[in-house]
């Protein structure tokens, strides 16, 4: 089950909120302080991309951010609701087979800035997974956590 789930309307001004929430939850989950900047940047990139996709495709539903604390890791899933949009993302991060799962219909993927966003995510996060489907795309990023020292 998700630790924290966030939905926000696809407006650029809300991406900052998503960054702040993600960093706060990551810190609590035990993600190393030195990595929090990377978490903030990566989730911001994924959210900016989703906002851009929703807006350029006229999708009115919110962008979804799911933050999950697991035993030894912390993961963030950013989901858009633009069918097939994850395909280019999957290609960009080199996920094999992603294209086969995508629907055939046309979609308006973003421009060069989108690719730069993905380049940043790929450069920052070792564990990235991209899924594309009929309901939209999901970028999943995972970071290791160090377990908190139990207080007496």
């Amino acid at each position: 089950m998700a630790t924290v789930e966030l939905r926000f309307s696809a407006q650029p001004e809300h991406v900052r909120t998503a960054r702040l929430v993600a960093a706060a939850v990551a810190r609590r989950a035990g993600v190393d302080e030195a990595v929090l900047d990377e978490v903030r940047l990566a989730v911001g990139e994924a959210c900016s991309r989703a906002v851009g996709l929703h807006r350029s495709n006229g999708v009115l539903t919110p962008v979804r951010v799911v933050l999950t604390e697991e035993e030894k890791s912390f993961s963030i899933e950013v989901g858009d609701e633009v069918p097939g949009a994850g395909v280019a993302a999957a290609d960009a991060v080199g996920v094999p087979g992603a294209r086969d799962e995508a629907p055939a219909e046309e979609f308006d993927d973003a421009d060069g800035e989108d690719e730069m966003g993905l380049a940043v995510i790929r450069g920052l996060v070792d564990d990235v997974e991209v899924r594309a489907g009929e309901e939209g795309g999901v970028i999943r990023m995972t970071w290791p956590t160090t377990p908190a020292v139990a207080l007496p």
Binding site: R19, L41, E45, S48, G112, E113, M116, G117, V120
Partner: peptide
């Protein structure tokens, strides 16, 4: 304090 790919663009 913060720069993302949109800023790079």
């Amino acid at each position: 304090d913060f720069l993302d790919s949109t800023g790079l663009g």
